[in-house]
Nucleic acid binder design. Structure first.
Lengths: 249, 249
DNA sequence: GCGACACTTCGACGGCCGGCGAAACGTCCC
DNA sequence: GGGACGTTTCGCCGGCCGTCGAAGTGTCGC
């Protein structure tokens, strides 16, 4: 702080920056906090009470966890009246968490009821992945786009010219982006499939369009997404997907 | 285990898999373990003693940490005689750790000596990033390749046709890969610069070539890389890099 | 304004985890 | 074979952290 030290060898005023990997790890090191982050992958803003109920802890405990996650930059919050809404801070955080989940070891959890088993299969089939679609359906869509020549994987994922036309045919207009190649294409490691599915602006636009056209509908208040009959027909028609990949495992 | 339960509603034999994000986080949540992972980003295989010395802990403590990291799948080990060599399990782990480090909060560490300060600047300038180059030099190289039209960023990073020719001109032959576009191009978030640098097979090949031609030489047994005079000339000639980006900050 | 509600603060308790040294084990070199 | 060396096991200690309930603060609705 003070400039009185004029350069001694062991000056305590000289500091260097280092990434505090341990601090980030500690944020995720608790099962309750990890569960919160995973749940928030649905992109919604949750209230503190909802978080507490989902995590199965007392409200006071949830408050403490949310404080740490917000301070650590993983979560963003918004206070409205007597409610505290929290969500993932930005899409990059969501991507990071999905990537981590894909590499994390598996844990066996007992299934308590038939509906829980159903829901688990549904999550593996189709779920919200922050702003786009995840699950085996998302992988199938990615595969379908590849075999139809809409996606090219030479030197990284990219939309082809016919891919751009395909998007236009779906009624998706590039906001301020003219050339087809300029679409933002990324991939996301799917933690149920262990394979890549499409992410980025293109995936988000397709997902948004599918919700709009009721090909997909949000499930039971979680990140589960349901495929409608209309959606089944649409994916068959637009991508030539087979029946096998269009049904819940 | 036993098949005596024939399907009661609350059968305890039914399990589902979930990613154990907390277990992975716990592996990185300790400052000593995080430091070990960061050090191993240089891609080398370290002995347990080296790890203990670097982390500043007793050998017995290092053993315990290495056991946990190996069990968790982050590290691979090889026993040779009375030595235990450890390294990052695979390139994907290295990528994950770099990505995490880029998003982790910063920590101020006191600089104890002038040589430590020098080394810190050297790490920011050029360092090994598992199998390719990181630091401001790597970012400058990526920028140079972009302005020369060797890299295209439309819909994700990709090598252009002239980029493939450029590699051939450097004496880098694609092993079993014919078309220039087929090179594996990825990006890696540089945690000192906060920007992307080139990763993947192309980056690894260029780095390997630069070491071979003595443009770059390994530093003082850490991940520091030093740029030689010959290397300075080469990067000026092949990429038109300016003097400013070719000197240690 | 008066309950109901959402959230927060505080203190206490319990468990886990990282640290070490001492001793044991195995390998290498002379 | 003997001694040095690298690594491991074990037991112990100290501190941090997650949990809760109870009490407090602020907001909404009637």
């Amino acid at each position: 702080m003070s400039p009185r030290d004029n350069g001694a060898v062991t000056s305590p005023d000289v500091h260097a920056e280092e990434p505090d990997l341990a601090a980030l790890g500690a944020l995720l090191a608790d099962r309750t906090r990890a569960g919160i982050c995973l749940a928030l992958l649905d992109g919604r803003a949750w209230t503190a009470s909802e978080v507490a109920a989902l995590a199965g802890v007392a409200p006071s405990t949830a408050t403490s966890h949310l404080n740490r996650l917000v301070d650590g930059g993983l979560l963003a919050q918004e206070r409205r009246g007597r409610h505290r809404f929290v969500r993932l801070a930005d899409p990059g955080i969501a991507e990071m968490i999905e990537a981590l989940a894909a590499r994390a070891p598996r844990r066996l959890v007992p299934v308590r009821s038939l509906t829980a088993a159903r829901r688990h299969r549904a999550v593996g089939f189709a779920r919200v992945c922050y702003d786009h679609l995840g699950g085996s359906l998302a992988v199938a869509i990615t595969d379908g786009m590849t075999t139809r020549g809409l996606l090219s994987w030479e030197s990284g994922p990219a939309l082809t010219a016919s891919g751009g036309a395909w998007l236009t045919g779906l009624g998706i207009a590039g906001e301020g982006v003219a050339a087809a190649g300029r679409w933002h294409v990324r991939t996301c490691m799917d933690w149920t499939e262990g394979r890549l599915h499409l992410a980025g602006a293109v995936a988000a636009a397709v997902f948004h369009r599918a919700l709009e056209a009721s090909w997909l509908v949000h499930g039971d208040g979680s990140r589960v997404v349901r495929l409608t009959d209309r959606g089944r027909d649409a994916f068959k028609h637009h991508l030539g997907l087979a029946d096998e990949v269009l049904t819940v495992g």
